[in-house]
Amino acid sequence: MTPFGARLRALREARGVSQAELARALHVSPAYLSALEHGHRGRPSPGLIHQVNEYFGLIWDDAEEMVRLARLSHPRVVVDTAGLSAGATELANRLAREIRRLPPDAIAALNAVLDAVPPEG
């Protein structure tokens, strides 16, 4: 599941909307919507994100959060470590190999470490 897919499902279920009903409103197939919710499809298009925000009446911070989650929702990530340290390459390879085995608390801890890194700029 992707962050966008999880949030979309939570919104849909909280409002009592079926996948078929939401798919019709967004002019996508129920199969596509299911794949999006389950993380079997890549990032949604900006147009679809806008449609979701309109359908659920999301504005300001909530709408921006959907855009942010969509950016973080590519289920097949490529990490380019060219020019980085051997340790960075090792980390990327180990993470790719072991991520399926990590418990939720370990994933949360890794995300917390990354959240603490100052933004570039």
Rank of each mutant, 00 (worst) to 15 (best):
M1C: 06
P3I: 09
F4L: 13
A6W: 07
R7C: 06
L8D: 10
L8A: 11
R9Q: 14
R9I: 08
L11M: 09
R12C: 09
R12W: 08
A14S: 15
A20S: 14
E21N: 10
E21S: 15
A25W: 07
A25G: 11
H27K: 13
V28D: 02
P30N: 12
P30W: 03
L33P: 11
S34K: 10
A35Q: 15
A35V: 02
H40P: 00
G42Q: 08
P44S: 12
S45W: 03
L48H: 02
H50T: 14
V52N: 05
V52C: 08
Y55H: 15
L58W: 02
I59V: 15
W60P: 00
E64G: 05
L69P: 05
R71G: 12
R71Y: 04
L72V: 01
H74M: 09
P75S: 01
V79F: 07
D80G: 01
G83A: 04
T89Q: 12
N93F: 01
R94S: 09
A96S: 08
E98P: 00
E98W: 04
I99Q: 14
R101I: 01
D105M: 06
D105N: 09
A106Y: 06
N111T: 08
V113E: 14
D115W: 02
D115S: 10
E120L: 12
E120T: 10
